[in-house]
Computed example of a mutant assay.
Amino acid sequence: MDNPENDDITRDEIKKEFQLERMILFSDAVFAIVITLMAIEIKIPENEPLTDAHLPEALVHLMPTVLAYIVSFGFIGAIWYQHLKMFSLLKDYDRGLVIRNMLLLFFVGLFPFSATLISRGKGQMIPFFIYLGMILCCVIAQYVLYHYIVKGRPSLRINTDLSEHEKELDKRKIAVIGFSLSALLITTSYFMIPDPGMKPFAMLWMCVYAVVFRVIVKRRFQKSGKLPR
């Protein structure tokens, strides 16, 4: 005879798997819509004549928009890939997971707005700061979600080796701290530099961050005997 208790467990597991799948599909839809909305911004104005004489100039004016799309596409693609890896660890969900996932999607959803500001800002720094802030918020939100999955709620995870994920989480913690500090230094330096022509050099802090982050991560994992990928 069938065991009713086992049937209840099976139905409960199927229900949890289905609900978790819905959350993943919803997240994928948000990522896809955000990328689509940014691509829609790449368009030549309707009043622009598409003649051999005017088309090259119109395409040149589109380059900031295309560049913003390329950078944003790469960043959102990286977030989606990490999101895929994170959710591959899950077998269940709870309120905390849903809230943290929605927080990440909230900031991802603002990318079309911030990318549009960059493309139409014509070299202004305020749109750049807004765009940088969106990236920082996404990085922090993703770290919070990742930490919740790996460290916060073990009961939600499948039984698997977490050594690679713990190493990745450690790297992301360093990245969040370093990126936050770099954003603060860029903003402070920009407003403290009196010469308007020198203000764009404040962005060099991002290059310093990239180098220092690589050195710190390499030394940290060499000491622990685990080299980062």
Rank of each mutant, 00 (worst) to 15 (best):
D12E: 14
P45L: 03
V60D: 09
P49Q: 04
H61Y: 06
I14N: 14
I33E: 10
L20T: 05
A39L: 11
M23N: 15
F18N: 12
I35D: 02
E17F: 09
R22V: 03
D8L: 13
P45N: 06
R11D: 11
E46S: 11
P64S: 07
I24G: 02
A53N: 13
E21V: 00
Q19L: 08
N47V: 08
D12S: 13
T10D: 15
E57C: 00
I14M: 08
L55P: 02
A29V: 06
M63V: 05
F26N: 06
D8H: 15
E17A: 15
V34P: 04
V60N: 05
T36K: 00
A53T: 14
L55N: 12
K43C: 00
L59N: 08
L20F: 05
I24L: 09
N47W: 09
N47H: 08
D12A: 13
M38R: 01
T10Y: 12
M63S: 07
A39W: 02
K43H: 07
E46N: 10
Q19D: 13
E41F: 00
S27N: 09
L37G: 04
K43F: 00
E21S: 15
D12L: 07
R22C: 05
I40M: 12
R22H: 09
V60G: 01
E13T: 13
D8I: 07
I44F: 05
P49L: 04
L50M: 15
P56A: 03
K43V: 00
K15S: 12
A32T: 12
R11V: 03
L59Y: 07
T10W: 13
I44R: 04
M23G: 06
L55S: 08
E48I: 03
D52H: 10
A58F: 03
E41H: 01
R11M: 07
E17K: 15
T10G: 07
D8G: 01
K15M: 08
I42M: 07
L25K: 12
L59R: 06
F18T: 13
V34S: 02
E57N: 05
A29C: 06
K43P: 00
P56N: 05
A39E: 05
H54L: 10
I24W: 09
P64A: 02
H61A: 12
R11P: 02
L50V: 11
Q19T: 06
P49A: 04
I44Q: 05
P56H: 10
K15E: 13
E57L: 07
V60P: 04
K43W: 00
D12R: 15
H54D: 11
M23P: 06
N47E: 14
I40V: 15
I33Y: 12
D8R: 14
E41G: 02
A29Q: 03
P45H: 12
K15G: 00
I9R: 14
I24E: 14
K16A: 12
F26S: 02
M38S: 03
V34Q: 02
M38F: 01
E21I: 00
M38E: 04
M23T: 10
D8M: 12
I35P: 01
D28M: 10
F26H: 12
T51G: 13
E21M: 02
L50G: 08
F26Y: 11
I40S: 07
L20H: 10
E17W: 08
I35Y: 06
L55A: 09
I44G: 01
D8N: 11
